[in-house]
């Protein structure tokens, strides 16, 4: 059983938050069947899915901190985005937001992937990426409504590997 009181990286959070994390009914995220790797990395198209709550300032709505159970919506972030036009709207107060605010690549490293492509490490960076807001206590609507749409995007774009980044 998960015990947040014994986790070094959670030392800074409140007793209330530690208790909440310790009694929370964490979902089983083990896939029934894992995908098979069929291509070398250098022949693979990569997309990022980040739970950093990033959105495009002045164009997309922020993630809504008032949604009960957590905002399960997602934002598409184009590869061509100017990274500093991304804003942080993650509602959690349990982590330091300074990195996301001053350097959104912290949660959406598109320029870094483009360099990996230029170095020949990967074949292609997908033309769009996905931003979610990770603070979702009740993930039912995420599973039923958002994830199927995200998977449809990834399949339509013929993405080979998804790089998943929590904050």
């Amino acid at each position: 059983m998960f015990d947040a009181f014994n986790v070094n990286k959670l030392k800074h959070i409140s007793i209330k938050d530690k208790t909440g994390l310790s009694v929370y009914p964490w979902r089983n995220c083990k896939p029934k069947k894992s995908a098979k790797i069929t291509k070398p990395l250098s022949d693979s198209k990569i997309a990022i899915i980040s739970s950093a709550g990033l959105y495009i300032k002045d164009i997309q709505p922020k993630f809504d901190a008032k949604v009960k159970g957590g905002d399960y919506s997602f934002r598409e972030i184009p590869k061509s985005i100017k990274i500093n036009s991304l804003g942080d709207s993650h509602r959690s107060l349990t982590f330091d937001h300074s990195g996301l605010i001053s350097n959104p690549e912290t949660g959406m490293p598109i320029p870094q992937l483009i360099e990996l492509k230029n170095d020949g490490i990967i074949k292609e960076v997908n033309h769009r990426h996905v931003s979610l807001m990770g603070s979702i206590l009740a993930p039912g609507r995420l599973i039923k409504k958002s994830i199927p749409k995200i998977i449809e995007i990834l399949i339509n774009d013929e993405v080979d590997i998804v790089l998943l980044i929590p904050v």
């Binding site: 995220c29 739970s51 990770g134």
Partner: peptide, 13 residues
């Protein structure tokens, strides 16, 4: 809850 969101997306992907 970030790890769970990432984990669930991972599972269904």
């Amino acid at each position: 809850m970030c790890p769970q969101v990432v984990g669930l997306v991972q599972k269904y992907c």
